[in-house]
Design a protein around this nucleic acid. Structure first.
Length: 495
DNA sequence: TTAAATGAAT
């Protein structure tokens, strides 16, 4: 541990050394110093320091029986349970359990709340079941906070029946309890059930609304997400937070409702979200662009003070111009961005390449690709390759496109990029390359009828009907499925 | 001394 963060470790060692070295753990004053140190710096590092100090000085049966001692114990557990690796909480608990005469001496409801939180963060429901058992044994199973953590742990880990069982048997619940259950149900796709509990909740707060809206957005039920959002806004009493706005905007642009986009924009101006949270502003740019209103997207972008604009702001607006085929504007912005000495990343470059592809700016596109690799040292990913192949293919530069496709590292290459090239072969009626490309595709995947159809169409188009027929026979022989077309854009079926 | 929601851009 010392090697992980020598400076900090030295700092704490000194503190702990000064406070503790002359005394023993049984001194009340020193326990309180210890506690204040932990409360002032509630980090894993502090906890580990104090924990290891306890181990080396040795605590005995009488430890963790006074109020302060239990407080130290619980605070250590709390700090551990909030950490990314909360298994230390269990090590400590087991250690104390091992030297204590009875659980009643050293533990209370806080102890089990934190342990359950640790189970949740570890995603270890089996451990959670065990803690639940102990909770029943020590008689805390009807305690509001402990039960809420049980509901949270079970539903977070996907044990929804158990979560609902604890919930239904609770004598008393608060909004956190309700929200925990609704969150868990939503997380595991049980939207109807989540909604059922939501509708029975008497004091819904902004978290309740946000969680459910987020659930519907993730479940691609955009209309329902928007309906909920509008309902929340209209009944009053609950104000959306930045999280709510960030959650609802994807529903807005997927639904394509520009008027809601404008309302949220106006609301953000009025309440100060737009000015205070760059993520909200960036998301708004993206939403306007995806609603087809590049004018507003650009306006929002321009109104951000230069020093608040970050890479995501620039990338969002560049990608917006790209998707609207406004290549010139996209490239100008990229230049402006470079002047602001912001360093483009692979997403920025993908947007720029997209702009070139849609705008037919082949020379520029090739230049940006080179710039990305040579100057920025960003290795291209499969989307960059796909974009280049698409761009060259549209322009009829099939040889160049094929060369790029062959250059793709084998562990990265997929059937999608070859299909892009096959599409270009079809468009430009290049039979020879089309056959070559289909062979490539069939090596990776032979089940998709669309590939055969495309080549067969190329052959028909140039009058080679016999060969076209052969391809269709081959397709039947290999039992290629005539499944509904899969969109290359989002992978979802489109009929 | 406790608890619940976080998708900014491909």
């Amino acid at each position: 541990m010392a090697s992980l963060c020598p400076k900090l470790t030295t700092f704490y060692s000194n503190q702990i050394g000064n406070i503790f070295s002359p005394k023993s753990f049984s001194s009340k004053a020193y326990q309180e110093h210890l506690l204040s140190l932990l409360l002032k710096n509630p980090t894993r590092n502090t906890a580990l320091q104090i924990h290891s100090h306890l181990l080396t000085t040795g605590f005995n049966q009488s430890c963790f029986s006074t109020k302060t001692e239990i407080l130290i114990f619980n605070t250590l557990l709390r700090v551990y349970s909030q950490d990314v690796f909360p298994e230390e909480a269990f090590k400590l608990y087991k250690h104390v359990l091992g030297i204590s005469t009875s659980s009643f001496v050293f533990s209370n409801t806080f102890t089990y709340s934190f342990l359950l939180k640790a189970c949740t963060n570890l995603n270890q429901p089996i451990k959670g079941f065990q803690v639940h058992g102990i909770v029943i044994k020590v008689g805390f199973e009807l305690h509001l906070y402990v039960q809420t953590q049980l509901v949270n742990m079970y539903s977070f880990c996907g044990f929804l029946v158990e979560g609902m069982k604890v919930f239904d048997e609770m004598p008393e619940r608060n909004s956190v309890t309700w929200n925990s259950l609704i969150t868990g149900l939503t997380k595991w796709g049980e939207l109807d059930r989540a909604k059922w509990y939501f509708e029975r909740m008497s004091d819904r707060n902004v978290v309740s609304w946000t969680v459910l809206i987020d659930g519907y957005t993730r479940g691609n039920q955009y209309a329902e997400a928007l309906r909920l959002f509008c309902r929340m806004m209209s009944i009053g009493g609950v104000k959306p937070t930045d999280v709510t706005i960030l959650t609802v905007l994807p529903a807005v642009y997927n639904f394509g409702d520009i008027s809601i986009c404008q309302s949220i924009h106006a609301y953000g101006e009025k309440t100060g979200f737009n000015a205070s949270d760059i993520r909200v502003t960036n998301s708004l740019i993206d939403a306007y662009a995806k609603c087809g209103c590049m004018k507003n997207a650009y306006k929002v972008f321009q109104e951000i003070p230069t020093k608040r604009k970050n890479l995501v702001s620039w990338t969002s607006v560049i990608s917006g111009f790209a998707m609207h085929g406004m290549a010139k504007e996209a490239l100008e912005l990229f230049e402006e961005m470079e002047e602001e000495t912001l360093r483009a990343n692979q997403i920025t470059f993908l947007s720029v390449l997209n702009a070139c592809s849609h705008g037919g700016l082949v020379k520029e596109g090739v230049g940006f690709f080179k710039k990305m690799v040579d100057e920025y040292q960003i290795p291209p990913n499969i989307k960059h390759y796909g974009c280049m192949i698409d761009m060259l293919g549209r322009a009829g530069m099939l040889e160049e496109a094929e060369k790029i496709a062959l250059d793709i590292p084998s562990e990265m290459v997929n059937v999608v990029v070859w299909r892009i090239l096959l599409g270009a072969c079809s468009f430009h009626e290049n039979v020879e390359m089309g056959e070559r490309v289909l062979r490539k595709i069939l090596k990776i995947e032979r089940g998709y009828a669309g590939d055969y159809v495309l080549l067969s169409n190329i052959l028909t188009g140039v009058g080679r009907f016999g060969e076209a027929e052969e391809i269709r026979t081959l397709m039947d022989e290999w039992n290629a499925l005539k499944v509904p077309g899969l969109s290359l854009v989002d992978g979802r079926a489109t009929r």
